[in-house]
Design a protein around this nucleic acid. Structure first.
Lengths: 345, 345
DNA sequence: GAAAAAATTTTACGCGCGTAAATTTTTGTT
DNA sequence: AACAAAAATTTACGCGCGTAAAATTTTTTC
């Protein structure tokens, strides 16, 4: 079918074979409803017989606004970000935009490189999940001044036109309460110097939640840099188990990837994890990572509201775009999380 | 520093403040070595004081060839593809290209949409890991005729100018030999209708390898569609364990993600997996998925030569680009794999 | 040191399309 | 049916840059 269509290179040519002016065609492609019905019929009939695609470079050179939306995540090899990126991508397409996905791969200079390239793409807007603590904040700020940007997942105060993410307090208060209600109060297992600002919020929420429960907080900080969280969690867990630094039989990990490493270490040490009899340790965590269902035992965790976060991110961005790139005031939206009970605690 | 630079919008303006002609500047940006040294010095000195970025849309409209490389993978939420995409991305950047990453999300129509969009981007070349069996082969073929494309990971015969991937026989012969040498010969655990063509190659290799070892082959086909391999593996394993359809104590999974599901089912059933005493089952697999180190027990698997596959993919594509989009004959490159012994077998 | 050759720069034109302003056609009113 | 108002179409121009061909400068040759 489409193989038989004659290729037409330019809008000019097409306008000639169809016997209307090129600008009318241009209008049609911009908004099919803006031309008279008879003209539209002629155009669409011609489109059946000719294979024509507007030159996006010529289009974008002249249009004030591109239809591109940049999506930047800190680490795409993390299935959590892959999943949320997929969700956001789909919503952008449905809204008539062309999403363009980038990963900083955990490196601040890569993040800036991406933003620099993005700048010359002149995107309608950008959804940015920044690296966090290690981000080059000055450069990111400079970018946000030039391009309508909305932060998601990780907040950096005052950067971007809005923030959309999850409510870390909601995560931790639920996990702490659940663990306290069903057994010993948990210690908190985290990296000493986490790149992600959510980690700090979660620690604070842990301390506050423990106080609410009338329990004493105990934070275990493990060493390690970078994004190999499983490896870091594994190493830290081995050390903690060998040195018996755990003050309780219940461990609450800052995030699921650390917990996955923790569980691997427990298995290696022959420790049975879970709430049942014969178990020596309970482990819980936060994020509802795509793999947390398949750990051994399956991980009790607190789930992001993926749908709400991605939906709201895209909605807010489109609103931002429609109001010309600036919002009256910077809003911060945080969605509550949901406890997912599995076998590990 | 850069905040003080005066913004210059067009090459024209820049050429005026620097007092040379615009085309000379154009030459400089295309190839800095192509202008006289004194001129170059003048330009680079000006670039210190003025903030100018060429308009990529104007550039790409006029250049015969874009510097964009399209990378298309079937499922980015699979860390295997995320990892190989990252590797390839980096190599493209190092080679002076601008990679653009897309995921088909397991859907054939999405794959075609991506290729359609890619077509109007006029990329210098495309690295495509197709969905496989479910791909719309006719449309993919049409794309390959228009755009210089190299297939990787999954081969579709005669499509694209070349194929780069892993040698499935190398994977399976090693795992089968190892398992036979160290215990009972394995049965083969796979999806009944896998989308990925590598799965078929692996089954054939399993049967051939078992024959070589003088053992009888036994293939267990489980139900399930889509890309939720862990879930499918988990469900299939539960069924197989409950119905006692396993003819041996050794299971070789087609890929690591199925194995992750299999291990979860074993844990749930209270079966201890491994080669040691007290273990009732050995499980091994293929791919060396990023998470296979952290399963319980850690997964014995066979590793892709990630580096070679991605390096060769990019090299072959650049060679293709430099020879003007066509290669004398379609080559197929397959890299051998490497056995990784862990605790599961 | 003058003429020829080579390297560099400039002139001139076009890429494919968006869009304001001018023109034409259609619609609505009396 | 005549005319004004509204809607659609066309004319005319420009976007920022690549590039062939022409003009200039620099280097080489004897």
């Amino acid at each position: 079918m489409s193989l038989l269509k004659k290729k037409v290179k330019t809008m000019e040519e097409l306008s000639q074979v169809i016997n209307i002016s090129r600008p009318t065609l241009s209008k049609y492609f911009h908004d099919a409803q803006s031309v008279r019905e008879k003209t539209r019929a002629k155009i669409e009939e011609a489109l059946e017989h000719y294979d024509y695609r507007p030159n996006i470079y010529a289009v974008n050179q002249n249009r004030r606004l591109t239809k591109t939306i940049g999506i930047v995540v800190p680490y795409l090899a993390d299935p959590f970000f892959a999943e949320i990126a997929r969700n956001i991508e789909t919503r952008c397409i449905d809204a008539g935009f062309a999403p363009s996905l980038f990963s900083s791969h955990g490196q601040p200079d890569q993040e800036i490189d991406i933003l620099d390239n993005l700048r010359s793409v002149k995107p309608a807007g950008v959804l940015l999940a920044p690296l966090g603590r290690i981000s080059n904040v000055r450069e990111v700020e400079r970018f946000c001044r030039d391009v309508p940007t909305i932060l998601f997942d990780s907040n950096i105060s005052d950067l971007g036109e809005a923030f959309v993410g999850s409510d870390n307090y909601s995560f931790v208060s639920q996990s702490v309460k659940y663990l306290c209600d069903t057994g010993e109060p948990p210690c908190f297992f985290e990296m000493r110097t986490p790149a992600n600002p959510n980690a700090n919020k979660r620690r604070e929420a842990y301390i506050a939640s423990m106080a609410e429960q009338g329990c004493e907080a105990n934070v275990i900080k493990i060493e390690g840099e970078g994004w190999d969280f499983e490896e870091i969690g594994y190493g830290g867990a081995l050390k903690a188990l060998e040195e018996h630094t755990l003050s309780t039989n219940t461990v609450l990990c800052s995030n699921d990837r650390l917990a996955i490493g923790f569980l691997a270490a427990c298995y290696e040490k022959g420790l049975r994890v879970g709430a049942g009899t014969g178990c020596s340790l309970r482990v819980a965590s936060h994020d509802d990572h795509p793999y947390s269902r398949f750990t051994c035992p399956p991980l009790t965790t607190v789930a992001h509201d993926y749908e709400s976060v991605s939906s709201s991110s895209v909605k807010t961005l489109i609103q931002l775009i429609e109001s010309g790139g600036r919002l009256p005031n910077r809003t911060e939206q945080r969605f509550p999380a949901r406890l997912v009970r599995r076998m590990s605690a």
